[in-house]
């Protein structure tokens, strides 16, 4: 990453170009690229396009955020952009969406938390063990099995819903959190195994072999040698899976439909169907659902990007 390379002060390079020929020192690459950038963005069109894109990507969210704090009567009769002329703020929308009988986002929030934590911890643990076996154990059919697991990433979850639902029904699990946990775990496994396996293969073989020579078994190697080195990889996939589960609608809708189980996304989608014009509830409800993933994302963006670049995205 050249952008992270230490950069010499560039204060002389203010674009007049005069001082450069007499300077004995050659420009560093980073400096040259900085000049290129300056030239590029000095084109008004380039800046205009960048600004328009940035606005299109932020203003809609900002508008809904402003709306969530306006009194319902104002929301119905004027645009959110008029708010700044005559700011009137209320917390009423949030109170109603949290505690109102028809919304009750407080309990949905708990449901989402209760769904998310096990649905992140369980698949990561299982995938770590499986990835370890694929990476560091010798057995017949290893490659074929690994390719098969990799290939199963492409199975759309729609294909699995009805047979799974039938099974959960037979086992009497429907209406509890178990179907949601189990389903999220299953859907996460192929990608998780693939990603963690890739990370594990980057660990030098000599480390593992040294531990083996010292007489360590697989479990000991796994916990004492590999796990500490895998923390960034686990963080990367963990955030991934966290965002996926927290924001998921389809699994929640199919397996967690009861009011005691249904997560925020399901309540929110219900609300758009039943009270599609109640913008004071929709806006505040959307932000209740958004605040945790957005915070996590902003704090741990670095790990998330690493996960993405390691070749994983799920849809």
């Amino acid at each position: 990453m050249t952008s992270n390379a230490p950069v010499a002060p560039v204060k002389d390079l203010d674009g007049d170009g005069r001082s450069e020929p007499v300077r004995p020192r050659k420009l560093t690459k980073a400096e040259k690229r900085a000049i290129d950038t300056k030239n590029r963005l000095s084109s008004p069109w380039a800046s205009a396009i960048a600004i328009v894109i940035a606005l299109l990507w932020t203003v809609p969210t900002f508008g809904l955020f402003v709306t969530s704090w306006r009194p319902p009567a104002d929301i119905r009769t004027s645009g959110w952009w008029t708010f700044f002329g005559d700011p009137e703020v209320t917390t009423e929308n949030y109170v109603e969406v949290f505690t109102g009988g028809s919304t009750d986002f407080a309990s949905a929030f708990i449901n989402t938390v209760v769904i998310t934590l096990p649905a992140v911890i369980i698949p990561i643990t299982l995938a770590l063990l499986a990835a370890y076996a694929f990476a560091w154990m010798e057995f017949r059919g290893r490659n074929i099995l690994f390719v098969a697991v990799f290939a199963l990433q492409i199975v759309p979850i729609q294909v699995t819903l009805i047979p799974l639902l039938t099974q959960y029904n037979n086992w009497g699990l429907v209406g509890s959190f178990w179907p949601v946990w189990i389903s999220h775990t299953i859907f996460a496994l192929p990608l998780a195994i693939f990603l963690l396996h890739n990370f594990m293969m980057d660990i030098p073989r000599t480390l593992i072999e040294a531990a083996r020579v010292d007489g360590a078994g697989h479990v000991k190697i796994f916990f004492q040698v590999l796990l500490p080195l895998l923390v960034p990889a686990i963080a990367a996939f963990g955030i991934f899976q966290f965002l996926w589960v927290w924001n998921d609608l389809l699994v929640g809708l199919v397996f967690g439909s009861g009011p005691d189980v249904s997560p925020l996304t399901v309540r929110l989608a219900d609300l758009t169907g039943t009270r599609g014009t109640a913008w004071h509830l929709l806006s505040s409800g959307a932000f209740v659902a958004m605040v945790v993933p957005v915070t996590v994302f902003l704090l741990l963006q670095r790990y998330f990007v690493r996960g993405l670049l390691a070749g994983g995205v799920k849809g």
């Binding site: 990507w57 809609p60 599609g276 929709l282 958004m290 996590v296 902003l298």
Partner: peptide, 16 residues
């Protein structure tokens, strides 16, 4: 940032 927002949330943002 929209990657961190649920698609239901994004739908509400744009429906508005």
């Amino acid at each position: 940032l929209p990657m961190a927002i649920s698609m239901v949330g994004a739908s509400i943002i744009w429906k508005f």
